[in-house]
């Protein structure tokens, strides 16, 4: 390779590495200051690795700061939302791709409208309805709206995968005496594992990070999810940064953990949702 080719190539790599550092640095900084005391954070050792690893920041965040509780709440809400979204979306997709009736294309388009509707649109009526039904400050107040707003994306992903399942399998199961539910539960659903994984991860990320609904529908400490909980915590610990750093790490760790193992699938799900939506 000639020198004239090498220099632009070098510059490109320098640019990429520079941007990678900008992306990674705040996260690195978060991990390090979650283990430091204020003296280190505020002067002695701003950006380096911690000199004394103060794990008590984590116990403080988890116990005194209620992060353990918030983490559990986020987990409960996410898991319930994923299960409901998947069940409802798989059933609907089955009717939309397999069952035979007029206007199924129209209904599919109707469901796809949901990809463009912002959550702002529904916040007042949902709040009013939840408060009339005395459902504010319950897990359901988050689970049901989250599931509804994940539905369009879930149907979109499931449709792609379900169309790829050969119809001969349905025929064979039918001849073997399966009913509609038998075909759905014993033939189709077991073959939908990749779709289930994609929808599951995507929905998880949406619920885990959601702030607006969670902030408004939940005010009891015992029921707060992570994003709202962190907001509350940062109000309590304005001067002690260590425990806040620990709280941020606790909230971020599961996401990054999943990402490390499933980066390609996560990226694909984001592309699918955007390009078709």
């Amino acid at each position: 390779m000639k020198l004239t080719d090498k220099i632009p190539r070098m510059l490109i790599y320098i640019g990429l590495v520079f941007w990678a550092v900008i992306n990674l640095f705040p996260v690195y900084w978060m991990f390090t200051f979650s283990l430091k005391n204020n003296d280190e954070i505020f002067g002695e050792n701003v950006a380096g690795l911690p000199q004394n690893w103060i794990w008590s920041n984590y116990t403080e965040a988890l116990k005194t700061g209620n992060m353990g509780k918030y983490f559990l709440n986020s987990g409960i809400v996410a898991v319930a939302t994923i299960l409901i979204t998947l069940a409802v979306a798989l059933m609907a997709t089955f009717a939309l791709t397999r069952l035979i009736w007029k206007r199924r294309k129209t209904l599919n388009k109707f469901f796809m409208l949901g990809l463009t509707i912002p959550i702002h649109a529904s916040i007042v009526p949902i709040y009013v309805t939840l408060s009339r039904l005395h459902l504010l400050n319950t897990y359901l107040a988050l689970i049901i709206p989250y599931a509804a707003f994940s539905l369009s994306m879930a149907i979109l992903v499931c449709t792609g995968f379900m169309n790829a399942i050969p119809r001969e399998l349905d025929e064979a199961a039918c001849i073997d005496g399966c009913g509609v539910w038998g075909i759905f539960l014993r033939v189709i659903v077991p073959l939908m594992k990749p779709a289930v994984a994609t929808v599951g991860i995507y929905t998880f990320l949406q619920c885990w990070n959601e702030l607006m609904f969670a902030n408004i529908f939940i005010s009891k400490t015992a029921l707060k999810t992570l994003p709202v909980g962190i907001q509350a915590l940062s109000g309590q610990y304005t001067t002690a940064w260590g425990p806040i750093g620990a709280a941020l790490v606790v909230a971020t760790f599961p996401t990054l953990f999943i990402y490390v193992f499933l980066s390609k699938r996560i990226q694909d799900s984001f592309v699918a949702g955007a390009v078709k939506g």
Partner: peptide
């Protein structure tokens, strides 16, 4: 015949329609 049964079609669609219309469409 099995796949054209109106009752089944409705049953498979109803949860999605209720959730979608109740939380997304009606509130708008």
């Amino acid at each position: 015949k099995l796949y054209s049964n109106k009752g089944h079609i409705l049953l498979f669609l109803i949860p999605a329609i209720i959730l979608f219309c109740g939380i997304l469409i009606a509130p708008i």
